[in-house]
Design a protein around this nucleic acid. Structure first.
Lengths: 331, 331
DNA sequence: GCCACTGTTGACAACGTTGTCCAGGCCCTA
DNA sequence: TAGGGCCTGGACAACGTTGTCAACAGTGGC
């Protein structure tokens, strides 16, 4: 900028004024400055600007895995809202590792993002207390924060799972398996809670062997599904705790052939789920809406809202497509 | 930091040394400093650090749509490499709009990202010339840059399409339709080139009505597919120019029922493609590998490589699953 | 002709950090 | 005990920008 000033034969501040579109510069002076800027290929250094102004016009997003088809639209929605507010989005994946989540969040804070959207991997977010105190707006999505209080946007996981399982019960199933994610993940236990609630409401007993929480790696899920289908009291229907589990379950079921059809309802929608045979019935969240809502809460904070932490719960939607309406195999 | 220094009763620079793990500080002094840091909830301001050091340890990624299942793993791969080099990833979506791509790229440059990975939406990247001259390492992925020269990582679009179409021809098809993206998108025309090459190689004539380039919105694709299947010389096989087209094509074909099966090969893999019936034969790119390769080229530049711009072309892979092996409907 | 006023411009400090350089205290050796 | 070298710590400037404030010129009114 100094070079531009020299070349245009004006003061430093005048260049700053032109660059920022501030008033009080003659047309002629402005022309000279712009010419110099073009000639030198000058671009304002936002780092210095941030340092001086205190605002970065950027927000951070910490999520589990950017490549997961559930989080991608969420991220995109946050980006869209941020863009609308003139902010850039910096995002990172925690890979479901609490320590990495912490590192990422703190790195983003050190860059002085104005706000933070976090999909928690860990259960303890007290490490963010100093940041919150320092004024970093923070919103948690998909899972609630641990041991601190902050704006939160969730889907109704328990309610959704309950509806899905009740749907299977309504179609005559009494032995229903649940395969979900690791128990330290909030959504996994919430969905399991919904499963139990539905079973309880129908006064159906639940065998320990019908429930499996753990990593959603295909090998494990595959084994668990096979086990549930073969034991002494095999299940006639499955509730899959998330999209990865659903995909694996569909594979296992299709390998078994259609001789003894097993009903399936999955949490989270899948691309092309409507084209499978049978098409997969799911409890759908609206990831884009989750992201949008979270981002909007965030920017409300940035605009100065000082209301008490809010908790927004978005409904889920049962999409019957066929796999959840199969009757139990006769027995 | 000043406050920390005061509280610990040491000089500013000593705090800086502790924060950065530089040598030359007594254990006792370090302890006092760390105590003060914890007590005050101090976090280093990276903006100031960047300003002083000149490196931001962050790279920018400009892509078309983060929520697209093709780009998400690519983005994730870039992030992973960046993380490995201690850098953060800032990304933005251009929504296939050249102007927005330009804005984004320049905004990232203004933030002084060390490097830039761009999936071009536009055809003219001369606007990046000053940035390149200023030392911003830049790598283009998936599509080549326009009117400037820079490192580029591409899939072999034409070769892949040629292989896919040849595969259909090998299974007896002579009338093959091509539905692709808008003609100003490089990948669309490259894939069309591959289609033509395969048809030419087999000395098959190509009707104008068999080729359709344009927006990949489901309505348009739906109409084009229907048209190609119904005209005076209906196609017996389709080549879908990308994953969105494939998904729509599968829908249209499944709606028609299986009476007159139409063969289908799609460019880009689809989640669950193996579970459809018939399972979808695709030409698969490896988006994660594209991202990883691009990021690695980028960091080589950042590590000082001054070699001439490189162009890496990654192979595609034909995955036969059923839909591409259907014989032509008898005629 | 003088004063007050307006509109344009530039000098300077400050943002929070790090690199450079120097001061002072310590220990070791001759 | 004097001199030299090493280790620790601090003062200061600099990074590139913007906010504050004052200087300056031109204009109009009396």
């Amino acid at each position: 900028m100094k070079d531009v000033a020299t070349r245009a034969g004006v003061g430093l501040k005048t260049v700053s004024r032109v660059v920022n579109g501030e008033p009080g510069v003659t047309a002629e002076t402005e022309r000279r400055v712009r010419e110099a800027i073009a000639a030198l290929g000058f671009r304002r250094n936002d780092s210095a600007r941030v340092l001086r102004k205190g605002r970065t016009s950027s927000v951070g997003l910490v999520l589990e895995d950017l490549a997961d088809p559930f989080y991608a639209p969420l991220s995109r929605a946050v980006e869209e809202v941020a863009r609308h507010h003139g902010a850039l989005l910096i995002n990172g994946s925690s890979a479901e590792d609490p320590e990495r989540e912490r590192e990422l969040a703190l790195a983003l804070c050190a860059r002085r993002v104005d706000g933070l959207v976090v999909i928690p991997a860990g259960a303890d977010h007290r490490y963010l207390e100093p940041e919150l105190a320092a004024g970093v707006a923070t919103v948690f999505v998909d899972r609630p924060p641990g041991l601190i209080s902050a704006d939160t946007v969730l889907s109704d996981h328990a309610g959704g799972a309950r509806e899905g399982v009740a749907h299977l019960i309504a179609h005559g199933h009494r032995r229903i398996g649940f395969v979900g994610d690791q128990p330290h993940i909030h959504t996994a236990t919430e969905r399991l809670r919904g499963y139990r609630a539905a079973m309880d409401a129908a006064a159906l007993p639940v065998h320990d062997g019908w429930i499996s929480l753990g990593p959603t790696a295909p090998e494990r899920v595959r084994g668990e599904v096979r086990r549930m289908l073969s034991g002494p009291s095999p299940v006639t229907a499955l509730f899959a705790g998330n999209n990865r589990v659903t995909a694996t379950a569909v594979r296992v079921l299709s390998e078994r052939g259609l001789s003894t059809a097993v009903a399936l309802v999955g949490f989270d929608d899948l691309e092309l789920a409507d084209l499978l045979s049978p098409a997969v019935t799911v409890i759908a969240q609206d990831p884009a809406r989750l992201g949008r809502t979270a981002a909007e809460l965030l920017f409300q904070r940035l605009d100065g809202s000082a209301a008490a932490p809010r908790r927004v719960e978005l409904p889920t939607r049962l999409i019957p497509r066929g796999s959840g309406e199969l009757p139990p195999a006769s027995d």
